[in-house]
C-alpha cells in the first residue's frame, strides 16, 4: 500500500483496512465486532431518544416544572436541576436534537462535498487548482473563532436551524477533499476503462462501477460528519453561543457549568451528559470504522 502524501485523507488512514477474517457470500461479511457494537449502541440511543420523547410528562426545556435540585428517585430518574427541569428528560431531548442536527448537517455537507469534490476531480486543470485552494484554505482556517464571531453577532435572534446551516457552510471542506481524491484515483482505475471498453455508457459506469466503490466511503464520511456536527454545535453551546434554550448534549453542560454544578455538588447534572456523549460518540466512531473494515475486507475477497 503506497501512501499518496499530497492526497492524504486522515479518515482513510485512521480506518485503513486491517485484514479481517471475511466469509464469502451472503451478508455475513458485513458483521464484525466493531460494527456490531457500534450499531447496537446507535440503535439503543437512536430509538430511545426518538421514541421516548412521546411519553415525556412535560417539555423539559420549560423551567420550574418541578422542585429544584431533587435527588435521583423513581420519578426523576436522574433528579432535577437548579432550574427545576428533569435531567433525564432534558438529556433524552438533548440526544434527539443533537442527533437530528448532526444528520441534517451531514446531508447538507455530503451534497456540497460531493458536488465540489467530483467536479474538481473530473474537470481538473485550472478549475481544480482554484477549487482546491479554497478547500485547503477552509481546512487550515481555525473554524472556532469564526463560529464565535457569528455566534456573538446572531445570538438571541437565531434559530436552531441557522446554527445547522452555519455548520454546513464551514464544514464541507474535509469531505470535498476526500471525494476529490477518490475521483482522481477512480479516473485512472483499470476496471473503469474495462467497463467503458465493454460498451457500458456513463450512467451504467456511474451506477454499477463507481457507486458501489464510493458508497462505502460515503457512509463512513457521513457518519464522521454527524460526529463533527454534533461536536461543533455542542462546543458552541458549552460556551453559550448556540441556541442554549434548546436541549442538546452541549446545552446541558452549559447550564450545569453556569449554575456551578461542581461547586454545589450536583455531579449527576454533569456526569450524565458526559457519559451519554462518550457513549454516542463511541457508537458513531465504532460504526464508521467497523463499516470501513467490513467493506475493505469485502473488496479484498472479490
Amino acid at each position: 500500500m503506497s501512501m499518496d502524501v499530497n492526497n492524504l485523507d486522515p479518515v482513510a488512514v485512521v480506518v485503513a483496512p486491517t485484514p479481517a477474517s471475511a466469509s464469502r457470500g451472503s451478508l455475513v461479511w458485513l458483521v464484525n465486532f466493531r460494527l456490531g457494537l457500534g450499531l447496537l449502541i446507535l440503535a439503543i440511543m437512536g430509538l430511545g431518544s426518538f421514541i421516548l420523547p412521546n411519553f415525556a410528562p412535560v417539555d423539559p426545556s420549560l423551567q420550574a416544572s418541578y422542585m429544584r435540585n431533587l435527588p435521583v428517585s423513581g420519578i426523576h430518574l436522574l433528579g432535577t436541576n437548579a432550574l427545576g427541569q428533569d435531567i433525564f428528560w432534558f438529556l433524552v431531548f438533548g440526544i434527539r436534537n443533537s442527533l437530528t442536527l448532526g444528520i441534517l448537517v451531514a446531508v447538507g455537507v455530503t451534497i456540497i462535498a460531493t458536488l465540489v469534490g467530483l467536479s474538481a476531480g473530473y474537470i481538473g486543470g485550472k478549475f481544480e487548482r482554484i477549487v482546491m485552494l479554497f478547500v485547503d484554505t477552509f481546512i487550515t482556517m481555525p473554524l472556532l473563532p469564526i463560529l464565535i464571531i457569528l455566534g456573538a453577532l446572531i445570538r438571541g435572534n437565531t434559530s436552531f436551524l441557522t446554527v445547522g446551516i452555519i455548520i454546513v457552510l464551514f464544514g464541507w471542506a474535509w469531505d470535498a477533499r476526500t471525494v476529490r481524491s477518490m475521483a482522481l484515483s477512480l479516473r485512472e482505475r483499470e476496471f473503469i476503462n474495462m467497463a467503458r471498453f465493454s460498451g457500458a455508457n456513463t450512467m451504467q459506469i456511474l451506477l454499477r462501477e463507481i457507486f458501489p466503490y464510493v458508497s462505502a466511503y460515503m457512509v463512513v464520511g457521513f457518519i464522521n460528519t454527524v460526529l463533527f456536527a454534533i461536536n461543533i454545535e455542542a462546543t458552541l453551546a458549552v460556551i453559550g453561543l448556540s441556541k442554549v434554550e434548546v436541549p442538546t448534549l452541549g446545552s446541558i453542560i452549559f447550564w450545569a457549568l453556569n449554575y456551578n454544578a461542581l461547586f454545589t455538588g450536583q455531579y449527576v447534572w454533569l456526569v450524565a451528559p458526559i457519559i451519554a456523549t462518550i457513549t454516542l460518540f463511541l457508537g458513531l466512531f465504532l460504526t464508521s470504522t467497523g463499516f470501513n473494515q467490513a467493506f475493505a475486507s469485502k473488496r479484498g475477497v472479490s
Binding site: 455542542a234 452541549g250 456523549t277 462518550i278 463511541l282 470504522t289
Partner: peptide, 11 residues
C-alpha cells in the same frame, strides 16, 4: 486510542 479519539475536547 479508540476510546480517546472520538471524545470531544469539551467533554
Amino acid at each position: 486510542g479508540i476510546l480517546l479519539y472520538p471524545i470531544p475536547y469539551y467533554i
